[in-house]
């Protein structure tokens, strides 16, 4: 193994805990053709959700219980960190026929 390679691995290992806490996951939720997928997904408190809007329309991910409200302009994505446990139903305020569920474990 070349020293340069070793150094970059060491660097990566050193920075890893800062970038992603060991237990946290990154979950992608996509909106395309007015469909949210996956329609149901499980996450843990501390996980990061990447919301991806592939449509030319603006959408929102709005929790029915008020826990989050993410606005997604056309063809844009956004991230949010899951904060509270519970089963959260969410929808798009502009197109309330877009619905999905996020199951958040503590």
């Amino acid at each position: 193994m070349k020293p340069g390679r070793l150094a970059s691995i060491a660097l990566a290992v050193a920075f890893l805990p800062m970038v992603v806490p060991a237990h946290a996951a990154i979950i992608e939720i996509t909106m395309e053709n007015l469909v949210i997928s996956p329609a149901e997904v499980s996450a843990k408190v501390g996980d990061t959700i990447i919301w991806i809007n592939k449509d030319v329309f603006a959408h929102t991910a709005t929790a029915k219980n008020g826990n989050f409200d993410v606005t997604l302009p056309p063809k844009k994505s956004a991230t949010s960190v899951v904060k509270k446990a519970g089963t959260v139903e969410y929808y798009c305020r502009y197109h309330p026929n877009m619905k999905a569920t996020l199951k958040i474990e503590p």
Partner: peptide, 13 residues
């Protein structure tokens, strides 16, 4: 079909 979903969303809104 996309138009239909948009219109259905608007109707509910």
């Amino acid at each position: 079909q996309t138009g239909l979903k948009i219109f259905q969303g608007h109707q509910q809104h």
